[in-house]
Amino acid sequence: MSAVREAFILPLLFLTIALFGGLDPGAPAPWNPPSLFSLVLAVMVMAALVRSGTLAPDRLMHGSRPIVANANGLVVLLSLFAASAQVLNMLTPRSGLPSLIVGVVLFVLLLNTLVMSPDRPRLLRSFAVVTGSAFVLKFVILASLADPEGGRTKRVLLALFDVATLGTISQAPLHSAAGYWAFVLVLLFLAAVALLPPASYRSTAALPPYGERALTRTE
């Protein structure tokens, strides 16, 4: 990994995600720090990244590296943790039953990922699916249910839905730019994770069945 990527690109990408992931435009206190639960989820994300070989911590921090290089690696790891926590916090609905359900589902999915130990491409695909689904749920489905705009029929239907669910589903209305903002941040996060230094692999000499070459981690 080049020094520019390690010292500039990755930290700035992750710090930008950490900064704007907590932005809630229009709220009285617009900058929300991550919840404690999202910190737990971020730890699980880091563990999944390391176990899958998507992130090789020894390529960021190692005794053989100079002090400045190790400091750069530490910044990358800390900023990755902060960005993961903020992205998961951003994708979790703010209140009610959806918040609980999404929290539990994210926890179970990440736990499942940790147990399965997928390789790098599969983990990246899995992250894209998990974050994309959570994005659609919060910023498309739940946001449309909480949208104050619309005709009388829509408002009556929403009021009936609210009564039927005892108000546990409806969320506070989101700012019109929040969804676009979150979309960009999720894409940035996935791109930045793909740029992390992967663990070294070696190709086994013997070809396994079905013409595929097995990959074995050498760390």
């Binding site: 390690e6 500039f8 700035l12 710090l15 950490a18 900064l19 400045v68 910044v75």
Partner: peptide, 19 residues
């Protein structure tokens, strides 16, 4: 490379402080 790494460290710390 040392200069790039040092500058990146300074920029990242300043950015983190601003956050």
């Amino acid at each position: 490379e040392q200069i790039v790494r040092g500058a990146g460290l300074v920029v990242a710390i300043a950015y983190a402080s601003a956050i």
